[in-house]
Design a protein around this nucleic acid. Structure first.
Lengths: 236, 236
DNA sequence: CACCTTAGAATGTATAGACATATGGCGCAA
DNA sequence: TTGCGCCATATGTCTATACATTCTAAGGTG
Protein backbone atom coordinates (compact mmCIF):
# COMPACT_ATOMS: atom_id res chain seq x y z
CA UNK A 1 0.00 0.00 0.00
CA UNK A 2 1.64 3.22 -1.13
CA UNK A 3 0.57 6.16 0.94
CA UNK A 4 -0.19 9.49 -0.63
CA UNK A 5 2.00 12.35 0.49
CA UNK A 6 -0.46 13.89 2.93
CA UNK A 7 -1.08 10.45 4.42
CA UNK A 8 2.64 9.95 4.88
CA UNK A 9 3.01 13.28 6.66
CA UNK A 10 0.02 12.39 8.79
CA UNK A 11 1.32 8.97 9.82
CA UNK A 12 4.84 10.29 10.40
CA UNK A 13 3.59 12.81 12.92
CA UNK A 14 1.09 10.35 14.32
CA UNK A 15 3.75 7.80 15.12
CA UNK A 16 6.04 10.48 16.56
CA UNK A 17 3.27 11.35 18.97
CA UNK A 18 2.24 7.82 19.79
CA UNK A 19 5.81 6.70 20.34
CA UNK A 20 6.35 9.55 22.75
CA UNK A 21 8.94 11.35 20.62
CA UNK A 22 6.52 14.26 20.66
CA UNK A 23 5.02 14.75 24.12
CA UNK A 24 1.69 16.39 24.95
CA UNK A 25 1.82 20.21 24.75
CA UNK A 26 4.89 20.02 22.50
CA UNK A 27 4.87 22.34 19.54
CA UNK A 28 4.85 20.82 16.07
CA UNK A 29 6.93 22.20 13.21
CA UNK A 30 5.04 25.02 11.52
CA UNK A 31 3.52 24.45 8.12
CA UNK A 32 6.33 26.17 6.20
CA UNK A 33 8.94 23.94 7.84
CA UNK A 34 6.98 20.84 6.90
CA UNK A 35 6.67 22.18 3.35
CA UNK A 36 10.46 22.24 3.16
CA UNK A 37 10.88 18.88 4.87
CA UNK A 38 8.53 17.13 2.47
CA UNK A 39 9.06 19.45 -0.51
CA UNK A 40 5.39 20.01 -1.06
CA UNK A 41 2.81 22.78 -1.06
CA UNK A 42 1.20 24.20 2.02
CA UNK A 43 -2.23 22.75 1.18
CA UNK A 44 -0.81 19.25 1.39
CA UNK A 45 0.73 19.88 4.80
CA UNK A 46 -2.50 21.55 5.85
CA UNK A 47 -4.56 18.53 4.87
CA UNK A 48 -2.38 16.24 6.99
CA UNK A 49 -2.49 18.50 10.02
CA UNK A 50 -6.22 19.14 9.71
CA UNK A 51 -6.85 15.40 9.70
CA UNK A 52 -4.79 14.99 12.86
CA UNK A 53 -6.71 17.84 14.47
CA UNK A 54 -10.04 16.28 13.48
CA UNK A 55 -8.90 13.03 15.07
CA UNK A 56 -8.08 14.91 18.25
CA UNK A 57 -4.40 14.03 18.21
CA UNK A 58 -3.22 17.60 17.85
CA UNK A 59 -4.65 21.01 18.56
CA UNK A 60 -4.22 23.88 16.14
CA UNK A 61 -4.34 27.48 17.27
CA UNK A 62 -4.64 30.14 14.61
CA UNK A 63 -1.76 32.54 14.84
CA UNK A 64 0.05 30.46 17.42
CA UNK A 65 0.90 27.06 15.94
CA UNK A 66 0.07 23.37 16.25
CA UNK A 67 0.50 21.44 19.48
CA UNK A 68 0.29 17.84 20.54
CA UNK A 69 -3.00 17.26 22.34
CA UNK A 70 -3.45 15.66 25.70
CA UNK A 71 -4.17 11.96 25.60
CA UNK A 72 -7.91 11.74 25.93
CA UNK A 73 -9.11 8.74 27.86
CA UNK A 74 -12.65 9.94 27.95
CA UNK A 75 -14.01 8.21 24.90
CA UNK A 76 -13.68 4.67 23.71
CA UNK A 77 -15.50 2.61 21.16
CA UNK A 78 -18.06 0.37 22.81
CA UNK A 79 -19.14 -2.72 20.95
CA UNK A 80 -22.89 -3.12 21.19
CA UNK A 81 -23.45 -6.14 19.02
CA UNK A 82 -26.70 -7.70 18.05
CA UNK A 83 -27.24 -10.45 20.62
CA UNK A 84 -28.02 -13.33 18.21
CA UNK A 85 -24.88 -12.52 16.24
CA UNK A 86 -22.75 -12.29 19.36
CA UNK A 87 -24.00 -15.56 20.81
CA UNK A 88 -23.45 -17.33 17.50
CA UNK A 89 -19.95 -15.91 17.29
CA UNK A 90 -19.12 -17.54 20.60
CA UNK A 91 -20.22 -20.88 19.22
CA UNK A 92 -23.54 -21.22 21.01
CA UNK A 93 -27.08 -21.67 19.81
CA UNK A 94 -29.11 -18.54 20.28
CA UNK A 95 -32.69 -18.64 21.44
CA UNK A 96 -35.38 -16.03 22.04
CA UNK A 97 -38.56 -16.59 23.96
CA UNK A 98 -41.24 -13.87 23.94
CA UNK A 99 -42.87 -13.38 27.32
CA UNK A 100 -45.09 -10.33 27.06
CA UNK A 101 -46.63 -8.56 24.09
CA UNK A 102 -48.94 -5.84 25.22
CA UNK A 103 -50.39 -2.81 23.47
CA UNK A 104 -50.95 -0.16 26.06
CA UNK A 105 -50.91 3.53 26.84
CA UNK A 106 -48.04 5.20 28.59
CA UNK A 107 -48.18 4.81 32.35
CA UNK A 108 -49.71 7.90 33.91
CA UNK A 109 -47.16 10.06 35.64
CA UNK A 110 -44.26 8.26 34.00
CA UNK A 111 -42.75 11.14 32.06
CA UNK A 112 -40.32 8.90 30.21
CA UNK A 113 -43.06 6.62 28.90
CA UNK A 114 -45.32 9.51 27.99
CA UNK A 115 -42.57 11.20 26.04
CA UNK A 116 -41.76 7.97 24.22
CA UNK A 117 -45.40 7.37 23.35
CA UNK A 118 -45.89 10.81 21.84
CA UNK A 119 -49.64 10.76 22.41
CA UNK A 120 -50.12 7.35 20.82
CA UNK A 121 -49.84 3.92 22.33
CA UNK A 122 -46.79 1.89 23.23
CA UNK A 123 -45.98 -1.71 22.43
CA UNK A 124 -44.47 -3.49 25.38
CA UNK A 125 -42.28 -6.44 24.40
CA UNK A 126 -40.63 -8.53 27.08
CA UNK A 127 -38.57 -11.60 26.31
CA UNK A 128 -35.81 -13.92 27.34
CA UNK A 129 -32.51 -14.35 25.47
CA UNK A 130 -30.70 -17.64 25.91
CA UNK A 131 -27.54 -19.37 24.75
CA UNK A 132 -27.62 -23.16 24.35
CA UNK A 133 -30.91 -23.10 26.23
CA UNK A 134 -29.36 -21.39 29.26
CA UNK A 135 -30.97 -18.06 30.15
CA UNK A 136 -28.67 -15.16 29.34
CA UNK A 137 -30.70 -12.00 29.65
CA UNK A 138 -34.17 -10.66 30.33
CA UNK A 139 -35.29 -7.86 28.08
CA UNK A 140 -38.02 -5.32 28.76
CA UNK A 141 -38.71 -3.12 25.80
CA UNK A 142 -41.11 -0.36 24.86
CA UNK A 143 -41.58 0.66 21.24
CA UNK A 144 -43.31 3.84 20.15
CA UNK A 145 -46.11 3.01 17.74
CA UNK A 146 -46.11 6.62 16.60
CA UNK A 147 -42.56 6.18 15.31
CA UNK A 148 -42.76 2.54 14.18
CA UNK A 149 -46.32 1.59 13.22
CA UNK A 150 -45.04 -1.35 11.16
CA UNK A 151 -43.95 -3.29 14.23
CA UNK A 152 -47.56 -4.03 15.13
CA UNK A 153 -47.64 -6.54 12.25
CA UNK A 154 -44.11 -7.90 12.61
CA UNK A 155 -43.47 -11.54 13.40
CA UNK A 156 -41.53 -11.44 16.62
CA UNK A 157 -41.83 -15.05 17.70
CA UNK A 158 -38.35 -16.18 16.78
CA UNK A 159 -36.54 -12.94 16.09
CA UNK A 160 -35.99 -10.62 19.04
CA UNK A 161 -37.48 -7.15 18.58
CA UNK A 162 -34.04 -5.56 18.81
CA UNK A 163 -32.90 -7.38 15.71
CA UNK A 164 -36.10 -6.54 13.88
CA UNK A 165 -35.74 -2.86 14.73
CA UNK A 166 -32.11 -2.83 13.70
CA UNK A 167 -33.09 -4.08 10.26
CA UNK A 168 -36.19 -1.99 9.69
CA UNK A 169 -35.74 1.32 11.48
CA UNK A 170 -32.74 3.53 10.86
CA UNK A 171 -31.89 5.38 14.03
CA UNK A 172 -29.50 8.22 14.29
CA UNK A 173 -28.90 8.59 17.98
CA UNK A 174 -28.72 6.31 20.96
CA UNK A 175 -27.70 6.47 24.55
CA UNK A 176 -26.78 3.52 26.71
CA UNK A 177 -26.54 3.43 30.49
CA UNK A 178 -24.61 0.58 32.03
CA UNK A 179 -24.89 -0.31 35.70
CA UNK A 180 -25.03 -3.26 38.07
CA UNK A 181 -28.14 -4.24 39.99
CA UNK A 182 -29.28 -7.20 42.09
CA UNK A 183 -31.84 -9.45 40.42
CA UNK A 184 -35.36 -8.88 41.73
CA UNK A 185 -37.67 -11.84 42.29
CA UNK A 186 -39.04 -12.02 38.75
CA UNK A 187 -35.74 -11.47 36.98
CA UNK A 188 -34.17 -14.11 39.21
CA UNK A 189 -36.92 -16.59 38.38
CA UNK A 190 -36.55 -16.05 34.65
CA UNK A 191 -32.76 -16.28 34.74
CA UNK A 192 -32.97 -19.33 37.03
CA UNK A 193 -30.69 -17.79 39.60
CA UNK A 194 -31.11 -16.78 43.26
CA UNK A 195 -32.69 -13.40 43.94
CA UNK A 196 -30.07 -10.71 44.51
CA UNK A 197 -27.61 -12.14 41.99
CA UNK A 198 -25.47 -9.41 40.41
CA UNK A 199 -26.84 -8.48 37.00
CA UNK A 200 -25.42 -6.20 34.34
CA UNK A 201 -28.17 -3.74 33.48
CA UNK A 202 -28.03 -2.17 30.02
CA UNK A 203 -30.58 0.59 29.42
CA UNK A 204 -30.76 2.00 25.94
CA UNK A 205 -32.87 4.64 24.27
CA UNK A 206 -32.76 5.27 20.56
CA UNK A 207 -34.31 8.05 18.57
CA UNK A 208 -34.27 9.63 15.15
CA UNK A 209 -33.85 13.38 15.21
CA UNK A 210 -35.91 14.01 18.35
CA UNK A 211 -38.50 11.32 17.55
CA UNK A 212 -38.18 8.57 20.14
CA UNK A 213 -38.22 5.05 18.79
CA UNK A 214 -37.59 2.58 21.56
CA UNK A 215 -36.38 2.19 25.14
CA UNK A 216 -35.05 -1.10 26.42
CA UNK A 217 -33.76 -2.56 29.69
CA UNK A 218 -31.67 -5.70 29.44
CA UNK A 219 -30.70 -7.65 32.57
CA UNK A 220 -27.70 -9.85 31.87
CA UNK A 221 -26.56 -12.59 34.14
CA UNK A 222 -23.48 -10.87 35.55
CA UNK A 223 -21.15 -13.82 35.36
CA UNK A 224 -22.24 -14.94 31.90
CA UNK A 225 -21.88 -11.77 29.91
CA UNK A 226 -19.66 -8.75 29.57
CA UNK A 227 -19.28 -5.77 27.30
CA UNK A 228 -16.03 -4.79 25.67
CA UNK A 229 -14.88 -1.31 24.75
CA UNK A 230 -11.79 -0.50 22.75
CA UNK A 231 -9.64 2.45 22.00
CA UNK A 232 -6.88 2.08 19.52
CA UNK A 233 -5.73 1.53 16.00
CA UNK A 234 -8.43 -0.87 14.92
CA UNK A 235 -11.13 1.18 13.30
CA UNK A 236 -13.47 -0.75 11.06
CA UNK B 1 -21.38 31.36 14.87
CA UNK B 2 -20.90 31.85 11.16
CA UNK B 3 -19.94 28.66 9.42
CA UNK B 4 -17.35 28.62 6.70
CA UNK B 5 -18.56 27.46 3.32
CA UNK B 6 -17.20 23.93 3.52
CA UNK B 7 -18.70 23.58 6.99
CA UNK B 8 -22.07 24.70 5.69
CA UNK B 9 -21.97 22.16 2.88
CA UNK B 10 -20.94 19.52 5.38
CA UNK B 11 -23.73 20.26 7.85
CA UNK B 12 -26.33 20.60 5.09
CA UNK B 13 -25.59 17.09 3.86
CA UNK B 14 -25.21 15.78 7.38
CA UNK B 15 -28.65 16.93 8.41
CA UNK B 16 -30.16 15.61 5.18
CA UNK B 17 -28.78 12.19 6.10
CA UNK B 18 -29.71 12.30 9.76
CA UNK B 19 -33.23 13.51 9.04
CA UNK B 20 -33.74 10.64 6.64
CA UNK B 21 -34.09 12.83 3.54
CA UNK B 22 -31.10 10.92 2.22
CA UNK B 23 -31.39 7.21 2.96
CA UNK B 24 -28.52 4.72 3.28
CA UNK B 25 -27.12 3.67 -0.12
CA UNK B 26 -28.54 6.80 -1.74
CA UNK B 27 -26.25 8.57 -4.11
CA UNK B 28 -25.14 12.08 -3.27
CA UNK B 29 -24.89 14.87 -5.85
CA UNK B 30 -21.52 14.68 -7.60
CA UNK B 31 -18.90 17.28 -6.82
CA UNK B 32 -19.58 19.38 -9.93
CA UNK B 33 -23.27 19.66 -9.05
CA UNK B 34 -22.43 20.83 -5.54
CA UNK B 35 -19.98 23.33 -7.03
CA UNK B 36 -22.86 24.84 -8.97
CA UNK B 37 -25.28 24.68 -6.03
CA UNK B 38 -22.93 26.50 -3.70
CA UNK B 39 -21.06 28.50 -6.36
CA UNK B 40 -17.66 27.43 -5.13
CA UNK B 41 -14.56 25.57 -6.26
CA UNK B 42 -14.19 21.83 -6.30
CA UNK B 43 -11.64 21.80 -3.46
CA UNK B 44 -14.21 23.33 -1.13
CA UNK B 45 -16.81 20.71 -1.96
CA UNK B 46 -14.13 18.05 -1.70
CA UNK B 47 -13.16 19.17 1.76
CA UNK B 48 -16.74 18.91 2.98
CA UNK B 49 -17.27 15.46 1.49
CA UNK B 50 -13.92 14.16 2.69
CA UNK B 51 -14.81 15.20 6.23
CA UNK B 52 -18.11 13.34 6.01
CA UNK B 53 -16.29 10.28 4.69
CA UNK B 54 -13.75 10.44 7.51
CA UNK B 55 -16.62 10.56 9.98
CA UNK B 56 -18.10 7.45 8.38
CA UNK B 57 -21.33 9.15 7.36
CA UNK B 58 -20.77 8.68 3.66
CA UNK B 59 -18.72 6.38 1.49
CA UNK B 60 -16.85 7.67 -1.54
CA UNK B 61 -15.96 5.45 -4.47
CA UNK B 62 -13.48 6.73 -6.98
CA UNK B 63 -15.01 6.77 -10.43
CA UNK B 64 -18.46 5.88 -9.11
CA UNK B 65 -19.66 8.62 -6.78
CA UNK B 66 -20.50 9.30 -3.14
CA UNK B 67 -23.07 7.30 -1.24
CA UNK B 68 -24.75 7.53 2.14
CA UNK B 69 -23.23 4.93 4.45
CA UNK B 70 -25.12 2.36 6.46
CA UNK B 71 -25.77 3.28 10.05
CA UNK B 72 -23.39 1.16 12.05
CA UNK B 73 -25.12 0.17 15.25
CA UNK B 74 -22.26 -1.90 16.51
CA UNK B 75 -20.10 0.79 17.92
CA UNK B 76 -20.87 3.60 20.27
CA UNK B 77 -18.76 6.12 22.06
CA UNK B 78 -18.24 5.13 25.66
CA UNK B 79 -17.44 7.84 28.14
CA UNK B 80 -14.64 6.68 30.41
CA UNK B 81 -13.91 9.81 32.34
CA UNK B 82 -11.19 10.38 34.86
CA UNK B 83 -12.88 9.62 38.18
CA UNK B 84 -11.85 12.79 40.07
CA UNK B 85 -13.15 14.91 37.21
CA UNK B 86 -16.39 12.99 36.98
CA UNK B 87 -17.07 13.13 40.70
CA UNK B 88 -16.33 16.85 40.79
CA UNK B 89 -18.65 17.39 37.83
CA UNK B 90 -21.50 15.87 39.82
CA UNK B 91 -20.85 18.36 42.58
CA UNK B 92 -19.22 16.05 45.09
CA UNK B 93 -15.86 16.13 46.82
CA UNK B 94 -13.54 13.49 45.47
CA UNK B 95 -11.25 11.52 47.72
CA UNK B 96 -8.62 8.86 47.15
CA UNK B 97 -7.18 6.62 49.82
CA UNK B 98 -4.19 4.41 48.93
CA UNK B 99 -4.45 0.96 50.46
CA UNK B 100 -1.62 -1.13 49.03
CA UNK B 101 1.66 -0.14 47.40
CA UNK B 102 3.77 -3.17 46.75
CA UNK B 103 6.72 -3.77 44.47
CA UNK B 104 6.64 -7.39 43.46
CA UNK B 105 7.36 -9.89 40.74
CA UNK B 106 4.64 -11.26 38.51
CA UNK B 107 2.74 -14.11 40.09
CA UNK B 108 4.13 -17.42 38.84
CA UNK B 109 1.84 -19.13 36.42
CA UNK B 110 -0.23 -16.00 35.90
CA UNK B 111 0.39 -15.46 32.21
CA UNK B 112 -1.32 -12.08 32.21
CA UNK B 113 0.89 -10.70 34.97
CA UNK B 114 4.04 -12.16 33.49
CA UNK B 115 3.29 -10.59 30.13
CA UNK B 116 2.57 -7.25 31.74
CA UNK B 117 5.78 -7.35 33.76
CA UNK B 118 7.98 -8.05 30.74
CA UNK B 119 10.72 -9.65 32.83
CA UNK B 120 10.89 -6.80 35.32
CA UNK B 121 8.86 -6.16 38.40
CA UNK B 122 5.34 -4.88 38.83
CA UNK B 123 4.02 -2.15 41.05
CA UNK B 124 0.77 -3.11 42.71
CA UNK B 125 -1.38 -0.14 43.65
CA UNK B 126 -4.70 -0.67 45.39
CA UNK B 127 -6.88 2.15 46.59
CA UNK B 128 -10.33 3.40 47.40
CA UNK B 129 -12.18 6.14 45.50
CA UNK B 130 -14.84 8.06 47.39
CA UNK B 131 -17.34 10.87 46.81
CA UNK B 132 -18.17 13.12 49.76
CA UNK B 133 -16.45 10.58 51.97
CA UNK B 134 -18.75 7.76 50.83
CA UNK B 135 -16.90 4.81 49.25
CA UNK B 136 -17.49 4.68 45.51
CA UNK B 137 -15.07 2.15 44.08
CA UNK B 138 -12.22 -0.16 44.95
CA UNK B 139 -9.34 -0.16 42.52
CA UNK B 140 -6.72 -2.85 42.07
CA UNK B 141 -3.99 -1.86 39.67
CA UNK B 142 -0.77 -3.28 38.34
CA UNK B 143 1.74 -1.06 36.56
CA UNK B 144 4.65 -2.36 34.51
CA UNK B 145 7.90 -0.87 35.79
CA UNK B 146 9.53 -1.82 32.52
CA UNK B 147 7.18 0.54 30.70
CA UNK B 148 6.81 3.27 33.35
CA UNK B 149 9.92 3.42 35.56
CA UNK B 150 9.06 6.96 36.64
CA UNK B 151 6.05 5.85 38.65
CA UNK B 152 8.31 4.39 41.33
CA UNK B 153 9.08 7.95 42.45
CA UNK B 154 5.64 9.45 41.91
CA UNK B 155 3.64 10.91 44.78
CA UNK B 156 0.47 8.88 44.80
CA UNK B 157 -0.91 9.78 48.19
CA UNK B 158 -3.60 12.18 47.07
CA UNK B 159 -3.76 11.64 43.33
CA UNK B 160 -5.01 8.26 42.14
CA UNK B 161 -2.54 6.36 39.96
CA UNK B 162 -4.96 6.42 37.04
CA UNK B 163 -4.86 10.19 36.93
CA UNK B 164 -1.09 10.23 37.28
CA UNK B 165 -0.71 7.78 34.41
CA UNK B 166 -3.12 9.73 32.25
CA UNK B 167 -0.98 12.83 32.63
CA UNK B 168 2.44 11.23 32.26
CA UNK B 169 2.14 8.24 29.98
CA UNK B 170 0.68 8.50 26.52
CA UNK B 171 -1.05 5.28 25.66
CA UNK B 172 -2.25 4.31 22.26
CA UNK B 173 -4.52 1.39 22.88
CA UNK B 174 -6.85 0.26 25.57
CA UNK B 175 -9.44 -2.39 26.12
CA UNK B 176 -12.15 -2.31 28.72
CA UNK B 177 -14.29 -5.21 29.90
CA UNK B 178 -17.47 -4.39 31.73
CA UNK B 179 -19.36 -6.94 33.79
CA UNK B 180 -21.32 -7.33 37.02
CA UNK B 181 -20.07 -9.34 39.98
CA UNK B 182 -21.08 -9.82 43.61
CA UNK B 183 -18.83 -8.12 46.13
CA UNK B 184 -16.48 -10.53 47.88
CA UNK B 185 -15.75 -10.17 51.59
CA UNK B 186 -12.93 -7.68 51.24
CA UNK B 187 -14.55 -5.52 48.57
CA UNK B 188 -17.72 -5.45 50.63
CA UNK B 189 -15.80 -4.37 53.73
CA UNK B 190 -14.06 -1.55 51.88
CA UNK B 191 -17.25 -0.33 50.21
CA UNK B 192 -19.14 -0.66 53.50
CA UNK B 193 -21.83 -2.79 51.97
CA UNK B 194 -23.06 -6.34 52.59
CA UNK B 195 -21.12 -9.12 50.89
CA UNK B 196 -22.72 -10.17 47.62
CA UNK B 197 -23.87 -6.67 46.69
CA UNK B 198 -23.99 -6.17 42.92
CA UNK B 199 -20.87 -4.35 41.73
CA UNK B 200 -20.01 -2.96 38.33
CA UNK B 201 -16.61 -4.40 37.44
CA UNK B 202 -14.52 -2.41 34.98
CA UNK B 203 -11.32 -4.13 33.85
CA UNK B 204 -9.00 -2.14 31.66
CA UNK B 205 -5.66 -2.84 30.06
CA UNK B 206 -3.69 -0.16 28.28
CA UNK B 207 -0.60 -0.48 26.18
CA UNK B 208 1.57 1.49 23.81
CA UNK B 209 2.37 -0.30 20.58
CA UNK B 210 2.56 -3.80 22.08
CA UNK B 211 4.26 -2.65 25.29
CA UNK B 212 1.89 -3.20 28.19
CA UNK B 213 1.57 -0.32 30.58
CA UNK B 214 -1.07 -1.08 33.17
CA UNK B 215 -3.98 -3.35 34.05
CA UNK B 216 -6.69 -2.28 36.44
CA UNK B 217 -9.82 -3.71 38.02
CA UNK B 218 -12.33 -1.24 39.42
CA UNK B 219 -15.26 -2.43 41.54
CA UNK B 220 -17.99 0.19 41.58
CA UNK B 221 -20.90 0.16 43.97
CA UNK B 222 -23.59 -0.93 41.53
CA UNK B 223 -26.25 1.48 42.71
CA UNK B 224 -23.96 4.49 42.97
CA UNK B 225 -22.32 4.54 39.57
CA UNK B 226 -23.06 3.92 35.94
CA UNK B 227 -21.35 4.31 32.60
CA UNK B 228 -22.87 6.10 29.66
CA UNK B 229 -22.28 5.41 25.98
CA UNK B 230 -23.55 7.55 23.18
CA UNK B 231 -24.01 7.30 19.48
CA UNK B 232 -25.12 10.31 17.58
CA UNK B 233 -24.45 13.65 16.07
CA UNK B 234 -22.92 15.22 19.16
CA UNK B 235 -19.19 15.05 18.68
CA UNK B 236 -17.21 17.38 20.89
C1' DC C 1 7.67 49.46 35.24
C1' DA C 2 3.15 48.92 33.26
C1' DC C 3 0.39 49.50 29.35
C1' DC C 4 -0.68 50.06 24.61
C1' DT C 5 0.22 49.74 19.75
C1' DT C 6 1.87 47.41 15.96
C1' DA C 7 4.29 44.33 12.81
C1' DG C 8 5.09 39.71 11.84
C1' DA C 9 3.98 34.97 12.19
C1' DA C 10 0.96 31.11 11.83
C1' DT C 11 -3.21 29.05 10.74
C1' DG C 12 -8.11 29.21 8.20
C1' DT C 13 -10.39 29.48 4.04
C1' DA C 14 -10.94 29.59 -0.75
C1' DT C 15 -9.71 29.53 -5.94
C1' DA C 16 -8.47 27.55 -10.54
C1' DG C 17 -6.17 24.31 -12.71
C1' DA C 18 -3.63 19.94 -13.59
C1' DC C 19 -2.86 15.11 -13.75
C1' DA C 20 -3.83 10.39 -11.71
C1' DT C 21 -6.79 6.44 -11.06
C1' DA C 22 -10.83 3.61 -10.44
C1' DT C 23 -15.62 2.68 -12.27
C1' DG C 24 -19.23 1.51 -15.18
C1' DG C 25 -21.67 1.66 -19.36
C1' DC C 26 -21.77 1.55 -24.32
C1' DG C 27 -20.55 -0.04 -28.70
C1' DC C 28 -18.20 -3.16 -31.56
C1' DA C 29 -16.65 -7.60 -32.88
C1' DA C 30 -16.52 -12.67 -32.58
C1' DT D 1 -25.82 -13.04 -27.78
C1' DT D 2 -21.67 -12.67 -25.33
C1' DG D 3 -17.35 -10.79 -24.27
C1' DC D 4 -13.91 -7.36 -24.73
C1' DG D 5 -12.03 -2.81 -24.93
C1' DC D 6 -12.56 2.05 -24.86
C1' DC D 7 -14.09 6.35 -23.00
C1' DA D 8 -16.77 9.54 -20.30
C1' DT D 9 -17.38 10.15 -15.45
C1' DA D 10 -16.11 10.90 -10.70
C1' DT D 11 -13.13 11.00 -7.14
C1' DG D 12 -7.95 11.40 -5.30
C1' DT D 13 -4.08 14.16 -5.03
C1' DC D 14 -1.24 18.11 -5.55
C1' DT D 15 0.31 22.95 -6.78
C1' DA D 16 0.71 27.96 -6.37
C1' DT D 17 -1.51 31.80 -4.85
C1' DA D 18 -4.45 35.05 -2.31
C1' DC D 19 -6.54 37.13 1.44
C1' DA D 20 -8.62 36.74 6.23
C1' DT D 21 -8.11 36.01 11.11
C1' DT D 22 -5.84 35.49 15.34
C1' DC D 23 -2.04 35.19 18.36
C1' DT D 24 2.64 36.57 20.01
C1' DA D 25 6.23 39.35 20.93
C1' DA D 26 8.80 43.44 20.28
C1' DG D 27 9.15 48.13 21.03
C1' DG D 28 7.68 52.59 22.25
C1' DT D 29 5.21 55.71 25.54
C1' DG D 30 3.38 57.51 29.82
Amino acid sequence: MTLSLHERIRTDIESAILSGKLAPEDRLPVEHELMQTYQCSRMTVNKALSALAAAGLIERRKGAGSFVGRPHAHSMILDVPDLPVEVAKRGHVYGYQPLVRKLRAAARGNAEEEFLAGGRRLLQLDGLHSADGVPLAVERRLVSLAAVPAIADADLEKEPPGTWLLRHVPWTEAETRISAVPADAEIARLLKTPAGTACLLVERQTWRSSERITAVRQYFLGTAYHLVARFGSSRP
